[in-house]
Nucleic acid binder design. Structure first.
Length: 446
RNA sequence: UCCUCGCUAGCUCAACGGCAGAGCGGGCGGCUGUUAACCGCUAGGUUCGAGGUUCAAAUCCUCGGCGAGGAGCCA
């Protein structure tokens, strides 16, 4: 008897099959019991008729609590009435083994919960269809981005998580004791190490957790999040934008191909994602500033108008990103930000030192910045000057300066926030649902 | 760090100065096609904490706790 996975059930219609899983929901109707069983790969309805089973077994099924673990065997049928993911298939229960009848006080109801309760029970919440679907999409996003990079000449290089000092000298970092060496800090980026890596390997990427100790308290922030950071030698800003739009398009297409049922179960409008294809619109910071001025003038609601206030030189806030991206159906590149609001290592714009060769990719539908990147500074002397201007300890950056002494080349790289990307693709409100166990300023449990 | 909001049954919420309520979940019973099934019965309360106003406080006031949304900062 074949043990099958629910996601492959369409291949087994007309055959007997066994599934191993958990009872997600139960409806009993006299001599008939419907069990919605999830096995990790999907959700399938199992139907038990009283006449098909001995009386003791049937009585057990009628009383079987939500989340009981079961092994069920029976014929696979196609039936339009059957709910589930993918749905439309069901299993007639011929034999059932109850591994454990769950306690009756399972706390997660099959309806809305408050945020606090849901997060306190995250270890159980991830079993629910919506959360399961989001996390399946996340896994597909990660697989797709690695797939694209691996097949386009990038070498995966893992960068350290324990680091000696601030990588960018901007964010607040988590601090820890490091034996007799003083303090060490949890990495906020692998970029500087990747700049060393490309001089050995050409094109590289790192992918791992990133830590920010800032007290950010919004739907777009976590204290621990996962970031993909490609870095490319002999690559300028335009070349990097092409890489970004190719990779993002590949991710979207793969998720549409492999996670359609999950996205549909989340109520996502797939039509909006199907439009994602190169080229993405590219606008300069200068033009974006003009558009924001126009949007500010046109806004009539005084509260929203205040939030849209903008002058050249400011960094974008969330309301600015939302207003700007609402003008487009695809992700939008905004390039050439003011040097003053960006990190010290970005290459200046030729002839315009007040602007740097930076580019952010803003997702549609108000999801904001999913990628931030730049062409890196290749001049040793200018980089040293910037390190001094930013009051960074020159000694800590000695190795980084070395990279500009021994075969410096133009190079570029970017960081993509995985949770923001997943939130956008799934159409969910808050990025905390895009990671299995979110870490926020107020939460380290469970 | 600042602004705003919330906290009542296991969960989601109602009651807004006058008897503590409903739906879901739990328990018991009924039903051969349910889709968060439905129908009947049933158990379930330190209304976040402390203090105050009042004949009377879940409700009004003060302080505290916890959480959320947003700003700033960022991916």
């Amino acid at each position: 008897m074949a043990i099958i996975r629910v996601e492959e059930i369409s291949n087994f219609v007309g055959q007997e099959a066994t599934i191993q899983g958990w009872v997600y929901n139960r409806t009993d109707k006299g001599k008939l019991v419907f069990l919605l069983v999830r096995d990790g790969s999907g959700f399938v309805q199992c139907v038990a008729f009283k006449g098909d089973l001995d009386e003791a077994t049937f009585d057990q099924l009628v009383r079987l609590p939500q989340e009981s673990s079961v092994v069920i065997t029976g014929p696979v049928r196609e039936d339009k009435r059957a709910p589930g993911i993918p749905g439309g298939y069901e299993i007639g229960v011929k034999h059932v083994e109850i591994i454990q009848a769950a306690d009756a006080d399972y706390p997660m109801a099959l309806k809305d919960h408050g945020v606090d309760f849901a997060l306190d029970h995250r270890h159980l919440w991830i079993r629910m269809q919506s959360q399961w679907a989001v996390l399946r999409v996340r896994a597909a996003v990660i697989a797709a981005m690695r797939e694209w990079l691996d097949s386009n000449g990038f070498v995966n290089m893992d960068t350290p998580i324990l680091t000696p000092a601030a990588c960018e000298g901007t964010s607040t970092l988590f601090e820890t004791e490091y034996f007799d060496e003083g303090k060490a800090y949890l990495a906020q980026s692998g970029q500087l190490y990747n700049e060393a890596n490309i001089m050995a390997f050409g094109k590289v990427y790192c992918f791992g957790p990133t830590f920010r100790a800032e007290k950010s308290k919004t739907r777009r922030h976590l204290t621990e999040f996962w970031m993909l950071e490609p870095e490319i030698a002999f690559c300028n800003l335009d070349g990097m934008m092409e890489i970004e739009e190719q990779m993002v398009t590949h991710i979207v297409q793969r998720v549409l191909r492999d996670r359609g049922p999950e996205l549909k179960s989340l109520g996502r409008d797939l039509g909006r994602l199907e439009k994602i294809a190169p080229p993405f619109p590219r606008i300069s910071y200068d033009d974006a500033a003009k558009k924001l001025k126009e949007l500010y003038e046109a806004e009539t609601d005084p509260e929203k108008k205040e939030l849209l206030k903008f002058d050249w030189g400011m960094d974008f806030g969330a309301p600015h990103e939302t207003a700007l991206t609402a003008l487009y159906e695809k992700p939008v590149f905004v390039y050439g930000y003011p040097t003053a609001v960006k990190a010290f290592y970005m290459e200046p714009w030729p002839g315009r030192p007040e602007v740097c060769k930076s580019v952010d990719l803003l997702a549609p539908e108000g999801y904001g910045e999913i990628i931030g990147g730049s062409e890196r500074m290749s001049s040793h002397d200018l980089l040293l000057q910037r390190i001094h201007e930013h009051n960074l300890p020159e000694e800590a950056f000695k190795w980084y300066l070395d990279l500009r002494k021994f075969g410096s080349v133009p190079h570029s790289g970017f960081g993509m926030g995985v949770e923001r990307t997943v939130a956008w693709l799934c159409g969910i409100e808050h990025i905390r649902e895009a990671i299995a166990f979110p870490r926020t300023i107020k939460r380290v449990y469970p």
